[in-house]
């Protein structure tokens, strides 16, 4: 638990450091990219699906997997689509 907490706090600090360097121009793609990253909860959904054996458990696992997959796939695709629009010269 304490080790997990250390990881959490240090990651927050890295996040602040890295993200404060992102220019305003890219704030919408940044938020969209951060959005895709929290799709990593799909790993949680997979672990959940591997451990349930009741109907209720299966329903929870299905919903979690569907939500997380929409988050991952949609997030990366739309971020990529947006970033393609940023060009230096026409």
């Amino acid at each position: 638990m304490l080790a997990d907490l250390s990881v959490f706090v240090l990651s927050l600090l890295i996040g602040f450091e890295v993200i404060s360097k992102v220019p305003v121009t890219l704030h919408t793609p940044l938020m969209s990219a951060a959005n895709s990253i929290h799709g990593i909860i799909v790993v949680g959904a997979m672990v959940l699906a591997a451990s349930v054996d009741t109907p209720l458990g299966y329903v929870l696992a299905f919903l979690a997997a569907a939500f997380a997959a929409a988050n991952v796939v949609g997030g990366y695709v739309v971020t990529g689509r947006m970033l393609k629009m940023f060009r230096s010269r026409r």
Partner: peptide, 22 residues
């Protein structure tokens, strides 16, 4: 990540938390 003991989730979540806060 804390619940299922997965550091990758903790790191990814913290990065997004920091970004959203900024």
């Amino acid at each position: 990540g804390f619940v299922i003991h997965n550091d990758m989730l903790i790191i990814a979540g913290a990065l997004v938390g920091a970004s959203g806060t900024i």
